[in-house]
Write a protein that binds this DNA or RNA. Structure first.
Length: 399
DNA sequence: CCTCCACAGGAAGCGCAGGAGT
DNA sequence: ACTCCTGCGCTTCCTGTGGAGG
C-alpha cells in the first residue's frame, strides 16, 4: 500500500517540479488555425481575389475547394473569410461568414439550423420542415440585406447521404432573395462526388475551383518547425523528431493534420514519462498509441453480433471453415442469451470484419471437402479480451 | 472426366425505425 | 396525430464453383 502511495506521490511530485514540455498545447489541436499558413500563398491569393467582389457589394462566384485530408482546405477558407469579414465590417458592410461541417452536423436539418443560428437567428431544434427552415433563413437574409458566405465542409458526405437537394436550393436561392446574397463555398476531399450532382448544380457550384496539392515532406517539416516554436518550450523537440514526423506523414499523402497530431501525441507521451525532450522514440511510441487507440475504438463500437463472431474466431483460434466459426458462434449466443443469426448473415459479418481489418478471411477450396473461408485474427487476442470484457452483453464470456 | 462437398455470395422480400409531408 | 416513404438489418431461396476423390 505504501509502495503504491510512493509511486503516485512520485508522479505528482515530478509533475509539479518539471515545468512541462509544452508552452501552448492548443497550437497542435486539429482545429487550430495558425496566423500564417505556409505554402498556401497561391490558394490564399486566388481565393481572396475570387471573394473580393463582396467588398464592392456584388456577389462573387461560388467556389469549390478540393484536396486530400490535411492539405489545408479548411484552414485556408477560414483564414481568408475571417479577414474578409473584418475588412468588411471595418467599412460598415454587412458581410457574414458561416461555417458548417456537414459531417459533424449529420443531417440537412442541422446544417441549416447551425447556419441560421450563427447568423443570429432563433430557431427551434426540431418541429420545422426543411422548407420552412430554409424560408425563414432566406427571409432573414433578405430583411437585413446580409451578404452571406456559406462554407460547407466535407460536402461529399452530405451529397452521398442526402443527395443534392439542399445544394440545388442553395445555388438558386439568390433569385428568390430581394436583398442580400448567398455565396457558396464547398469543400471536399473526394473528387468523385461531382458525378453525383445534377449538372445544373455542379455548373453553378463550381464556377470557380481551387485545388490543394498534398504537402511534400520538406513542406511538412517547415510547418512542423513553425508549430514547434509556438507549442513547445525552447530546445525540447529535437530536429530528428520533427523529421521523423514529417517523413511518416509524408509517406501517407502529405497529410499535415496527421503530422501535427503525431507531434502532439509524441509530446504528451514524453511529458507523461517525465522526459526532458521529445525524441524519435516517442514518435514511434506515438504511432503505436494512435494505432492502438484506433483499434480499441473499432472494437468497442462493433455491433453485438459482430463482437460475438469475433469472439468465436478468437475462441476457435485458426479457423479453416466458416462452419467451424458458425457453430462456435451459435454456442456463444446461447451462453449470452441471444438468438443466433443465420449462416448467410454471419458469412456477411465475417466479410465486414475482414474489411475492417480485424480478421483476414480468404476463400479456399478443399476439393471434395468443400469451398470455404480460412479465417484468422489480425488483432491481438489480449486486446480483444480487454475491450470485450467491458461489454455489457459479451463481457460475461471473458470473466 | 465427372461428382459432389461446403460453402460463397447474388436477389428478393420482410419487418422495423425514423424522418418527411399533411 | 396520422400516413407515406425510405433505408437498414436480416432471412429465405437461390445459383455458382475449385478441386480431391472416385
Amino acid at each position: 500500500m505504501s509502495d503504491e502511495l510512493d509511486v503516485v506521490d512520485d508522479i505528482f511530485e515530478r509533475a509539479v517540479r518539471s515545468k512541462g514540455l509544452f508552452k501552448d498545447r492548443n497550437v497542435l489541436r486539429p482545429d487550430y488555425v495558425p496566423s500564417r499558413l505556409l505554402f498556401r500563398d497561391e490558394q490564399i491569393i486566388t481565393m481572396a481575389q475570387i471573394m473580393s467582389p463582396l467588398l464592392k457589394g456584388s456577389r462573387p462566384s461560388n467556389l469549390l475547394l478540393y484536396g486530400k485530408t490535411g492539405t489545408g482546405k479548411t484552414a485556408v477558407a477560414k483564414f481568408v473569410l475571417k479577414r474578409l469579414e473584418e475588412k468588411a465590417s471595418s467599412r460598415g458592410m454587412r458581410v457574414k461568414f458561416v461555417y458548417s461541417n456537414t459531417k459533424m452536423a449529420r443531417t440537412v436539418y442541422r446544417v441549416l439550423w447551425e447556419a441560421g443560428r450563427s447568423l443570429g437567428l432563433q430557431l427551434p431544434f426540431t418541429g420545422l420542415s426543411i422548407g420552412e427552415l430554409f424560408d425563414r433563413i432566406l427571409s432573414f437574409i433578405s430583411r437585413s440585406s446580409l451578404s452571406v458566405v456559406l462554407v460547407l465542409d466535407e460536402l461529399d458526405f452530405l451529397v452521398k447521404n442526402f443527395g443534392d437537394d439542399l445544394l440545388y436550393e442553395l445555388t438558386r436561392c439568390n433569385e428568390r432573395l430581394k436583398g442580400g446574397s448567398v455565396t457558396l463555398i464547398g469543400i471536399s476531399n473526394d473528387l468523385k462526388f461531382k458525378e453525383m450532382l445534377d449538372p445544373r448544380v455542379l455548373s453553378s457550384l463550381s464556377e470557380e475551383e481551387l485545388v490543394f496539392p498534398p504537402y511534400t515532406v520538406e513542406e511538412l517539416k517547415a510547418i512542423l518547425l513553425d508549430r514547434v516554436k509556438l507549442a513547445y518550450r525552447e530546445g525540447v523537440v529535437e530536429e530528428a523528431t520533427v523529421n521523423l514526423c514529417a517523413a511518416l506523414a509524408g509517406s501517407e499523402h502529405g497529410d499535415a493534420r496527421r503530422a501535427v497530431d503525431l507531434l502532439r501525441v509524441s509530446g504528451e507521451l514524453a511529458e507523461r514519462e517525465g522526459a526532458e525532450k521529445v525524441t524519435e522514440r516517442h514518435v514511434r511510441l506515438a504511432i503505436q498509441k494512435i494505432e492502438h487507440d484506433r483499434m480499441i475504438d473499432a472494437l468497442s463500437s462493433l455491433p453485438t453480433h459482430e463482437k460475438l463472431v469475433l469472439a468465436s474466431v478468437l475462441k476457435v483460434g485458426q479457423a479453416d471453415s466458416t462452419g467451424e466459426v458458425y457453430s462456435e458462434y451459435v454456442d456463444l449466443c446461447r451462453r449470452v442469451g441471444m438468438e443466433p443469426l443465420t449462416r448467410r448473415r454471419v458469412s456477411g459479418l465475417i466479410s465486414e470484419l475482414d474489411m475492417l481489418g480485424l480478421v483476414s478471411a480468404n476463400v479456399r477450396s478443399k476439393g471434395r471437402y468443400g469451398r470455404t473461408k480460412k479465417i484468422a485474427l489480425t488483432v491481438s487476442g489480449d486486446l480483444i479480451r480487454s475491450v470485450f470484457r467491458e461489454d455489457p452483453i459479451v463481457g460475461v464470456l471473458f470473466r
